[in-house]
């Protein structure tokens, strides 16, 4: 089964454990500035929102790449940057409507979420389950359940 990251901003406290875990997984150090997931703090609304790549099916970044450096990981469906191929032209960063592919000036390549090969570290690091990794076909399940719970029907024995 393919899975998707599922983000519930209402549960996010802004602790940045996800950013630390992401950067540690990909760089071997704790460095939120290298994280592929970012938490945005809308201070005066009291909202904190983790944001990262949605792994588009027909991905703009992948289509735009002139050297085919962005490929699909068959196991996870993630669009993954092949660092050895990437020439750092940044066209993908322009193509992505969501801004979730970014250029790393120090290495001259782009980086984006690769779902950690199917074990996303942001998910295991999140203390409040604001970030989960769920059945890709049922990302709406939680919301359906919460609406279903509001259906005003009493239980009746058969």
């Amino acid at each position: 089964m393919q899975k998707s990251l599922h983000i519930d901003p209402a549960k996010c406290t802004g602790c940045l454990q996800c950013e630390m875990a992401c950067s540690y997984e990909h760089t071997g150090m704790i460095n939120p500035s290298k994280s592929r997931i970012k938490v945005f703090n809308f201070e005066h609304e009291g909202r904190k929102v983790p944001y990262t790549c949605t792994q588009c099916a027909d991905a703009w970044c992948m289509n735009a790449c002139p050297v085919e450096a962005i490929v699909i990981d068959a196991a996870t469906g993630a669009k993954v940057v092949k660092e050895a191929t990437c020439v750092g032209c940044k066209v993908c960063t322009i193509a992505c409507p969501f801004g979730t592919v970014n250029y790393m000036a120090d290495v001259g390549k782009v980086q984006k979420c690769d779902l950690c090969g199917g074990d996303p570290k942001c998910v295991s690091a999140c203390p409040t389950a604001a970030i989960t990794y769920v059945d890709a076909d049922w990302t709406g399940l939680d919301r359906m359940r919460s609406w279903a719970a509001k259906a005003n029907t009493a239980a009746v024995a058969a």
Binding site: T13, C15, L16
Partner: peptide, 19 residues
């Protein structure tokens, strides 16, 4: 109270955000 909030790295999140 609007929500609770964490400082960096905090898994407790005792902070208060209010209106």
């Amino acid at each position: 109270l609007v929500t609770n909030a964490a400082c960096f790295g905090c898994t407790i999140a005792c902070g208060r955000i209010s209106k």
